[in-house]
């Protein structure tokens, strides 16, 4: 056996545990994050979202607040550029926007479009990504703070739509601080969370779809 062969064998042997470690570490990280996030009972956070969609003639920057109370309540309120509210209680959606000024009630069961929209929101905002392993190839981009990249696997619904999703967690890993979604069409969404509060009481007004005054 010549020297080169020995070096190759040693190199291969030394690389294979590294591959195994990398594979294992993603699941370990996901498990660790899930454990931390499973303690979240309530969430209230501000957000700034930048949408670069071809359907719009300019980049849309959205500012608002998200409220979550497990297991039944979710609210999405935007303040800029227009005021809009969506409150989800179980599978019923109430929505209101200032232009129309009407409260609309929609059952998710009867509205597949809303189901998709809400499903995507819940998926990425939940922070519970272990169950996505079958749907996405997940890679760990950075350990501190944790940054993950999700690439849809073939034969999934996301495969033809999403190019990748990048998620950055807070330093304390208790919630997400940034979500970036790149679509296959070139459209993109960047969502940043600000002033996030975990497990603090949420004002009942958060669940009112139409703001007072």
């Amino acid at each position: 056996m010549n020297k080169i062969t020995i070096i190759l064998i040693v190199l291969c042997m030394s690389l294979s545990p590294l591959n195994g470690y990398a594979e294992q570490s993603v699941e370990d990280v996901l498990g660790r994050l899930e454990e931390k996030m499973s303690n979240i009972k309530t969430l209230q956070t501000g957000f700034v979202q930048e949408k670069n969609l071809a359907i719009f003639d300019k980049k849309i920057t959205l500012k608002g607040k998200i409220f979550l109370k497990k297991p039944r309540l979710f609210a999405w309120h935007t303040e800029e550029p227009t005021r809009y509210s969506m409150v989800i209680r179980d599978d019923v959606i109430l929505q209101w926007d200032e232009d129309i000024d009407q409260v609309q009630k929609v059952s998710m069961k009867d509205n597949p479009a809303f189901q998709t929209v809400v499903g995507q929101m819940r998926k990425w905002l939940s922070g519970m990504y272990m169950s996505l392993l079958g749907e996405y190839n997940i890679t760990l981009l950075k350990q501190n703070p944790v940054s993950l990249k999700f690439m849809p696997r073939e034969n999934t619904m996301a495969y033809n739509i999403i190019s990748y999703v990048r998620i950055v967690f807070r330093e304390d890993e208790r919630y997400i601080c940034e979500i970036y979604i790149k679509d296959k069409t070139g459209d993109s969404t960047l969502l940043r969370f600000t002033d996030t509060l975990l497990n603090t009481p949420i004002d009942d007004a958060a669940w009112k779809v139409k703001p007072r005054g």
Binding site: Q49, M86, M157, D183
Partner: peptide
């Protein structure tokens, strides 16, 4: 349409 498109993952309904 506008409000739905402004949610994350709007690529699915585009």
């Amino acid at each position: 349409n506008y409000q739905q498109l402004l949610t994350p993952g709007s690529g699915f309904i585009m």
